[in-house]
Write a protein that binds this DNA or RNA. Structure first.
Length: 741
DNA sequence: AGAAGCTCATACTCG
DNA sequence: ATGAGCTTCT
């Protein structure tokens, strides 16, 4: 049994599988059989070392990865696999907090706030703290708070840790207010799930010891993308037995922007000096050409661990680089190539994935797919659970589950319109605050106040009766929620609230009704799973909708082209991959372009995308592109922005590329480097009449060079012959942007 | 008072 | 395209 388990593994994989005692770091390059090693290691623990499956925890990045792992464990172990705990960080934390959270004062019917809810709450916190959201954008403040939490800094610790700049002072004021509101509402945001779990384990000895004892073996996947708080949680859980195995690849770290810290890999080696390190370097996924190209793209990065990826696979096809005119032509090219692959090469639509940096790029692809009648699945985009009609229904369910959830209550208090407008709400709030009541309690009190004038509340009789109707509705729904499963509850909400009628006549009516149907179906799934105790299904359902990610729904059954962002593509693989928009400003993204560290992350993102491809890799860029209508750049090129090829393209050896496209322009953005070394793409220049600008492109034309330069201000993009241009000043590319941050 | 209709700015990557 | 915030309509 055990020898069979190890038979199909290479020596490094065998070693990783059999190293079960003590801390272990597995550095696993893309396609190196990482999941295989994790699952085999778990199987080995159970079958070879007789470890109780219930004492093994595997933490993954997405639910989809967790499910996949469970399926593969099931194949290796059969029924035994069911005991293994396979969860994401967030779901692991939720389960810990549901069971033991009350020991740190957490209401166990807490709700989980998504980013929308978080913004609403931040907005309110800022209102209360008299901070102008125009001066201090909610998003920026929210990120600052998120940063603090990722580093396990509560408001107090944040206050001590920061320079007392005025900005930090503002953040602190909002942070304090935000936390206290959230606590009143018995709500947690995503960051809280981890920080609260850490707080619980740190503060409550018995809870800490319980989990430390139970979790004999801990495996953390995608370790390069954990943040400080997640790592702290991992260490806390592993502290007794010290059997902690982390699997990661610094080259695939693409979430620094949400506080993931590759430094955790170094910290791991410092925190566990006795840890063993195993490198998985053989790539089984991709052709040799793809692996070679990817290696050339990643190698300019500094601060890399030694992980020398190689492949023994066949060379395979050359990479294909396309240069299209604009995003529509690019999409057109993708579709005709996919057509060809399907008709001539025996591939399926489902084998093909189209990847891009930003969601907005999916638009042109969707249009092209529809025109060609090719079915596609769009991953991400406007997420299902963030659609208005779905969020409304979730808000009803949340208020039923936890009436302190004021963000949800406020969302649906007058949806559908029921005569409780902003003035009424304001008065209810004012009254509630004066009496120390939550909004729901205030509504109840006002509703129950039979003798008029008993309360000091200035509301019209009309408003009071509207409130009374609402309270009657909620009382009934709450009462039924004790008896019904969540799907039946959704039906009751739809009926009693008149939600379908509310959607009637709207512009997106049929689409919204379809979404509602889909939502009912999902509720029914959870209800059926918990048919023995239907009242529990509401909480389970709310939890499942809070923690899904778009990739979770990706099913391979349907033969459709996958449209997906590079970030979401991590961990996936496809026979054929198209990566679009390999242009400066998009990949690397304009928001990252000024910071060398961020450019390194963009490079890793490209590397992640490339290494998703098993057989064929297509790269594409355009000369013009419209993104979001591009209002800022509308003066250029008829509403579109002139594009220059990504610097990353230059790092792929020409020998690996088969080039197509209809423009004589070179892939190499600095093609004239040797002729006129003083002007290169990316240089900052100053023109006598047009002012300051950045060189976008250079083309040798006869005995002169034509440069495309984007000037600041109204001049916009101009093509200029360098021989005669009155360019006064030149700053080299690297000096053009001294650390702006 | 509350609803509806309008303009306006705004938009990277995510559990 | 979407939401916030404003004005106008009922």
């Amino acid at each position: 049994m055990v020898t069979e388990l190890l038979r199909n593994l290479n020596p490094a994989q065998v070693e990783a599988t059999r190293t079960v005692d003590g801390p272990l770091l597995i550095v696993a390059g893309p396609g190196s059989g990482k999941t295989r090693v994790i699952t085999h290691r778990i199987a080995y623990l159970i079958n070879g070392c007789s470890i109780d499956p219930n004492r093994i925890v595997a933490v993954t990045f997405t639910n989809k990865a967790a499910r996949e792992m469970r399926t593969r464990l099931d194949n290796l172990l059969g029924e035994l696999s069911e005991g293994v705990i396979c969860k994401t960080f967030h779901s692991l934390c939720v389960s810990i907090l549901r069971v033991d959270g009350k020991k740190i004062g957490l209401d166990n019917s807490f709700v989980i706030y998504d980013d929308d809810d978080k913004s609403s709450l931040l907005k309110r916190a800022m209102e209360e703290a008299n901070i102008d959201p125009k001066q201090y954008p909610i998003r920026a403040i929210g990120n600052a708070i998120s940063d603090a939490k990722s580093n396990l800094l509560d408001p107090q610790a944040f206050a001590l840790s920061r320079s007392n700049s005025y900005y930090d002072e503002i953040v602190l004021r909002v942070y304090e207010r935000y936390e206290s509101l959230k606590s009143n509402m018995a709500a947690l945001d995503f960051d809280d799930l981890v920080t609260q779990a850490v707080g619980l384990l740190r503060q409550v000895t018995e809870v800490r010891e319980k989990y430390q004892e139970r979790y004999l073996h801990l495996l953390i996947d995608e370790f390069q993308d954990t943040n400080h708080s997640q790592y702290a949680l991992s260490r806390l859980l592993a502290d007794k037995h010290r059997n902690i195995c982390v699997v990661g690849d610094p080259d695939q770290s693409i979430y620094a922007w949400r506080n993931a810290d590759v430094g955790n890999i170094l910290s791991f080696q410092n925190n566990y000096p006795d840890s063993k390190v195993i490198n998985l370097e053989e790539n089984y996924r991709s052709t040799k050409n793809i692996v070679e190209a990817a290696k050339h793209v990643i190698s300019p990065n500094r601060n890399r661990l030694n992980n020398d990826l190689f492949s023994k696979n066949a060379d395979g096809c050359l990479l294909v680089v396309n240069e299209g005119h604009d995003e529509n032509e690019e999409a057109q090219w993708v579709l005709s190539e996919i057509d060809r692959l399907v008709r001539q090469e025996g591939l399926r639509f489902g084998d093909c994935a189209v990847m891009y940096r930003v969601n907005a790029q999916s638009r042109a692809m969707e249009d092209a797919c529809r025109r060609h009648g090719v079915s596609y699945r769009l991953i991400g985009g406007v997420r299902f659970y963030l659609r208005r009609e779905i969020k409304d229904l979730i808000a009803y369910l949340r208020v039923i589950h936890n009436r302190r959830d004021e963000i949800s209550l406020m969302r649906i208090i007058n949806v559908p319109p029921r005569g409780i407008g902003s003035r009424t709400i304001e008065e209810v709030r004012r009254w509630g605050e004066a009496h120390g009541f939550s909004v729901y309690e205030s509504l109840q009190a006002i509703s129950d106040d039979k003798e008029k004038g008993g309360l000091q509340v200035s509301l019209t009789g009309r408003a009071v009766s509207a409130i009374r109707r609402l309270m009657t509705l909620f009382e009934e729904l709450s009462c039924q929620a004790q008896l019904l499963g969540v799907s039946d509850l959704v039906d009751l909400v739809l009926e009693k609230v008149g939600y379908r009628e509310y959607l009637r006549g709207g512009e997106r009516e049929s689409e919204q009704l379809e979404n509602v149907q889909e939502f009912r179906g999902q509720a029914l799934e959870v209800q059926d799973l918990l048919s023995e105790n239907p009242a529990l299904s509401l909480e389970a359902f709310l939890e499942s909708v809070a923690l899904v990610s778009p990739v979770d729904g990706l099913n391979d059954a349907q033969d459709a082209v996958t449209l997906i962002t590079l970030h979401q593509a991590k961990g996936l693989e496809f026979p054929v991959v198209f990566i679009l928009g390999i242009e400066e400003g998009l990949l690397p993204h304009s928001r990252s372009i000024d910071d060398p560290l961020q450019v390194e992350e963009e490079r890793r993102l490209f590397y992640v995308g490339m290494t998703r491809a098993k057989e064929r890799l297509y790269l594409s860029r355009t000369f013009l592109r419209r993104i979001y209508g591009d209002s800022r750049n509308s003066q250029y090129s008829g509403g579109r922005t002139a594009r220059t090829p990504s610097r990353f393209l230059r790092d792929i050896p020409r020998s690996l590329i088969e080039k197509i496209g209809n423009d004589s322009n070179s892939t190499r953005g600095d093609s004239v480097e040797s002729d006129t070394p003083s002007i290169r793409v990316g240089d900052k220049v100053k023109h006598k009449t047009f002012g300051e600008g950045i060189v976008l492109n250079t083309i040798a034309t006869g005995d002169d060079v034509e440069a495309t330069i984007a000037f600041k201000g109204p001049s916009g993009v101009k093509r200029i012959m360098l021989g005669i241009a009155p360019l006064e000043k030149l700053i080299k590319k690297d000096e053009a942007f001294p650390n702006n941050e």
